[in-house]
Design a protein around this nucleic acid. Structure first.
Lengths: 199, 199
DNA sequence: TATGAATGAACGTTCGTTCGTTCAATAAAG
DNA sequence: CTTTATTGAACGAACGAACGTTCATTCATA
């Protein structure tokens, strides 16, 4: 039995190696400029063996696209431990900004977005992910408004979308220049978000 | 002489046909899933003839990527005819929102962005275009602040980037769903932008 | 010994690109 | 105005390389 698990373990490790290698390749060259051979070679395994782990290239792309989802789950868990909605929102902005500003994440996001327009599976996963994120942020905004006894001028869900837009936009620009965002820009981002959530 | 221009004219018309056909193909299938044969077939010309007009596929992609630039020039010209900066800014928001919310523009933009990360020529063109647009908007914001005698809380250039982010984000979402943006969302967008430019 | 991981040659396509050729439009010569 | 020479647009077969995928086979381990 222990032997049986040993096999499963090494097999699962190999699978993860493939996923990580594929992600690296996709970030460097894009989905459709990366060949299965590229991934196999870089992972140090044979061409045929890769097909023991993934049915085809599309499945591999879908798997990578879903990686973002699990990363955002971690973020959502962190937020759920903060009781003050204003603090939680502020923390989210910091964490999500850091996340998005990593160049690899920005590049991969751009790849996924453009792929989403044509591949329904990937598009739906991406959308679902988005909706969950918006819901979490909108909840924070609403709770904060209730606590302060005010009626928000912008609908919470719209406001949440806007906040994500601002963060992702800033991140994309900084990824483009190849360096992290300027201190000034990050400060401006926080100011802008503050303006959006205030009445 | 008139004969000479006749040849040039038909030649130029053919060239434009190729560009437009290529754009349609790229929007439908993406840059790298579109083959030269796809374009030639759809344009109704032979494979070899296409190479009389474009050196290679990359040149064709670059040409398409630059199309956006000329479209935005039109927009900039319209703005330059409005003297009141607040009115001009409002008009810009409407026009640019309409432009971005056309699904083909959103899809093509996504394609260009992801391509920009890897192809320097396209990336620089895209960036240059962005900078010009930001400069125009930042000018409007600054003029408006001066006229009202206030000091803007967010630096005009940052604010301009944020406005573009909001518009493009909304457009991407609406393109994703395949329908135009909800009235409510467009209204929320205007409110949000108003908040950003106010002191 | 039995099982599943691992291999890489091979298959059929499709890709971007080249090239020799045809043919109609233009310019030059009579 | 005819006739002839020149141009360059248009074609599609052909090229070599690369693609995703399959499969018979080998190897290691439980």
């Amino acid at each position: 039995m222990i032997a049986r698990t040993k096999r499963k373990e090494t097999s699962q490790a190999r699978r993860q190696l493939i996923v990580e290698t594929a992600a690296a390749c996709f970030i460097e060259k894009g989905f459709h400029q990366t060949s299965i051979r590229d991934i196999a070679r870089r992972a140090g395994i044979s061409l045929g063996n890769l097909y023991n782990y993934f049915e085809n290239k599309t499945a591999l792309i879908a798997e990578i696209a879903m990686l973002e989802a699990s990363e955002l789950d971690v973020l959502k868990n962190k937020l759920s431990k903060i009781t003050d909605p204003a603090k939680a929102l502020d923390r989210f902005v910091s964490l999500y900004t850091d996340h998005c500003c990593q160049q690899e994440n920005s590049v991969l996001s751009a790849e996924i977005v453009s792929e989403s327009f044509r591949s329904p599976d990937i598009g739906l996963g991406f959308l679902q992910n988005r909706i969950e994120l918006v819901t979490v942020i909108a909840d924070l905004i609403e709770k904060n408004a209730e606590r302060e006894g005010v009626h928000p001028e912008i609908a919470p869900r719209d406001c949440a979308e806007f906040i994500l837009d601002l963060i992702e936009g800033l991140a994309e620009r900084s990824a483009f220049k190849g360096i992290g965002p300027a201190r000034k820009a990050t400060k401006a981002l926080k100011t802008a978000i503050q303006k959006l959530v205030s009445v």
